[in-house]
Simulated scan of single mutants.
Amino acid sequence: MVSHFISAEPASATLEHIKSSGTLNMGYRQLAPFSFQGEDGKVSGYTITLCNMVADELRHMLSLKNLSIHYIPTIFTERVASLNSGKIDLDCSVNTDAPERKGSVSFSKDYFTANMRIISLRNNNIKTLEDLRGRTVSIPRGSKDLLEFNRVNREKHLSISIVTSDTVEDAFNMMAQRRTAAFIIDDILAYPYINQSEHPEDFTVSKDVVGEKMKYAIMMRKQDPVFVAFVNKTLTRIFESPLNDQLSNKWLTQKVVAKNTHKN
């Protein structure tokens, strides 16, 4: 990608750290098609690609030809602490741009919108939230899905019990092993786990959408507006170019979502 930034001295704590260390630390999770480590050990995905393009711009702007990229596994509940401690500079996995989080972190402009749905075993015949009344569901802890489902559950007086997990995969397995009646997650994140299972036909994704839409963004440290602006300028150029359609076709189609999934 051709850079539009000119070389300049860093004007933010994050840029200072990247320039002095010669490294860019990216947090990620096993969440195909946005971020995942494949069987070959390579970390890739749609959001990882966006962050790699940010890294290309940083190499040019900071005159760091040998900028190293470190991909650091980071679970949902560790994201904010990892950013604020300097362990990671960007969280390049799935992060929902939520108002309640903006007091502790910053977000880039949104790059994808997902819908939260009910994932269940087909023979449980669960199609709506009402079908889950008084039952138990699994949701990853630290996720926006958990916050949003708690709100819906409370407002609709559904009395649904929630079991939380560290990862999306663990929450899916709870449902698949019948430890919970359903798994609540954004639809695009559910399809890879369904498609990689031994019997994909055993699972169903609800037509009903649960709660508000989930808008994904790159997560960054709070109080570093210069770095946030740098990331957003890079994303804006990508989104306004033909490259955006190429990336979407490569990573975000149903066929690719099924293919680009590595089972831990």
Results as ranks from 00 to 15, higher is better:
Asn264Gly: 15
Pro33Lys: 10
Arg179Gln: 14
Cys92Ile: 15
Asn232Arg: 09
Val163Leu: 11
Leu252Val: 14
Phe34Val: 00
Asn260Met: 11
Leu31Cys: 08
Ser68Gln: 13
Lys250Gln: 11
Ile194Pro: 11
Ile160Asp: 10
Leu189Lys: 03
Met214Pro: 02
Pro140Glu: 07
Glu240His: 14
Ile48Trp: 00
Ile6Glu: 05
Phe230Val: 04
Asp208Val: 15
Ile118Lys: 09
Arg178Leu: 01
Ala171Lys: 09
Tyr71Gly: 05
Val205Gly: 02
Asp208Asn: 13
Ala171Cys: 06
Glu198His: 12
His4Trp: 01
Thr77Asn: 06
Leu31Lys: 10
Phe203Ile: 10
Phe183Gln: 05
Tyr216Thr: 01
Leu50Ile: 06
Glu169Tyr: 06
Met53Tyr: 09
Asp245Gly: 03
Tyr71Ser: 10
Lys215Glu: 09
Arg237Pro: 05
Ser68Lys: 15
Asp208Glu: 15
Tyr46Cys: 05
Leu24Cys: 04
His262Asp: 07
Gln223His: 15
Phe112His: 14
Tyr71Leu: 14
Ser197Trp: 08
Arg154Gly: 00
Ile72Lys: 12
Ala55Val: 11
Asn150Ile: 03
Ala8Val: 02
Ile126Glu: 02
Arg179Cys: 03
Arg221His: 03
Asp56Phe: 04
Gly211Phe: 05
Pro192Ser: 11
His157Leu: 14
His60Ser: 04
Glu57Ala: 09
Gln37Glu: 14
Lys144Gln: 12
Asp166Asn: 13
Ser241Val: 06
Ala217Pro: 01
Ile72Asp: 10
Thr74Asn: 08
Phe149Tyr: 10
Glu148Phe: 00
Ser63Phe: 00
Asn195Thr: 12
Val137Gly: 05
Asn115Leu: 01
Thr167Ile: 00
His17Cys: 02
Asn84Gln: 13
Ser20Arg: 03
Met219Phe: 02
Thr113Trp: 00
Gly41Pro: 09
Arg221Thr: 06
Val152Thr: 07
Val152Lys: 03
Val257Tyr: 07
Phe76Asp: 02
Thr164Cys: 10
Glu130Thr: 14
Ser241Arg: 06
Leu158Ser: 12
Ile48Asn: 12
Ser248Arg: 13
